[in-house]
């Protein structure tokens, strides 16, 4: 186990760019998960909200969260696409 950890660290060190991309990927995925939970939470709140103004506000917030998720998913897929393009290049530099 320890050896595997050490090897991972060594790999990270040698592939700094790749690690950065992986960190970004992890960050985006984690935030997207949170946004999904938030979206569901707002949806639930809208269903039970009686006050008209407050419901309107929540609906707006829902739209915002939805747009943010769309943007996040787009960014993530773009990044993963780039990653996939990079890999074969690395394997066949010629």
């Amino acid at each position: 186990m320890k050896l595997r950890k050490l090897l991972k660290k060594l790999n990270d060190y040698l592939n700094e760019d790749e690690k950065q991309l992986q960190d970004k990927d992890d960050g985006l995925s984690s935030v997207l998960k949170k946004l999904k939970i938030k979206e569901m939470d707002i949806q639930h709140k809208i269903e039970i909200e009686m006050d008209e103004d407050e419901r309107k506000f929540l609906e707006q917030e829902l739209k915002i969260v939805h747009s943010q998720r769309e943007k996040g998913i787009h960014l993530l897929s773009e990044m993963r696409g780039r990653k996939n393009v990079q890999k074969p290049e690395e394997q066949n530099p010629a």
């Binding site: 960050g27 984690s30 935030v31 943007k71």
Partner: peptide, 27 residues
């Protein structure tokens, strides 16, 4: 956020002015 990568991700996802405006227009 707790992790630096998440803070960076949040800043990447945060909507720009024109994106907010288009949500406003949709409204």
């Amino acid at each position: 956020a707790g992790a630096r990568a998440e803070t960076e991700a949040e800043h990447m996802i945060a909507l720009e002015d024109h994106e907010i405006s288009s949500v406003l227009e949709e409204n």
